[in-house]
Design a protein around this nucleic acid. Sequence first.
DNA 1: ATGGTGGCTTGGCCA
Length: 261
Amino acid sequence: MTVSVATWNVNGIKARIDNLLTWLEESKPDIACLQEIKSVDENFPKARIEDLGYNVVTHGQKGFNGVAILSLLPIDEATPRLPGDDGDEQARFLEAVVSVEGGALRVCCLYLPNGNPVDSDKFPYKLSWMERLEAFARDRLALEEPLILAGDYNVIPMPEDARHPDEWVGDALYRPESRGAFRRLANLGMTDALRASSDADGLYTFWDYQAGAWQKNNGIRIDHLMLSPQAADRLSGVTIEKHVRGWEKPSDHVPVRIELT
DNA sequence: ATGGTGGCTTGGCCA
């Protein structure tokens, strides 16, 4: 059987609910990981999404951040928070185990810290968060299960992942420390789904609202699905749903969707 | 060009 899994930074669920419902009806991903819901759990429009057949789990906070996982398949477990720092109050991580035909699929929805400005405490927070993510991945990879780490990584992995890489030099999304941490995650044995399935050069997932970035295709690729070997072996397709950026009241990110067969 | 745009909130932070 085929399982489809998508990730989308919606930039505010309240502002994006109509676009989200339109997209769900059109794309019908089995599992969708959402970031930047910017909502507490109680205000998340759960019922309208459940009406489309989805099970919904959220890990929200007031005003900022917040992640959610939607699944047409049963969610057996859902666990918020990235291990490694009990004092971290930011809602950026949600792990779920979903029942699929023939077993279980572990899906983690992550919203990695932006890290700018780099001379503030936000940059070391980003790097320590990435160290925690690497430790978490190492631990989960030992299970030798199909595993997907999907989300907004706020990392431009390579120059080919930006229309104008020179404009990003010095930015936390492109700093060598950030790219190195992303590479260490890959080097544990995780596959960047888009890189694996196609020539990713010139394919972007984010276009800033400012300065006509969308109209000029001045984009970057920062939304990624990283796959364990057991998931990567089943990868049969990847799609960047770019047309969603052209809708009314768009998010600045678009959905990225994979198929496992 | 120290701006630009948008979301969540009511003064200002975050991206």
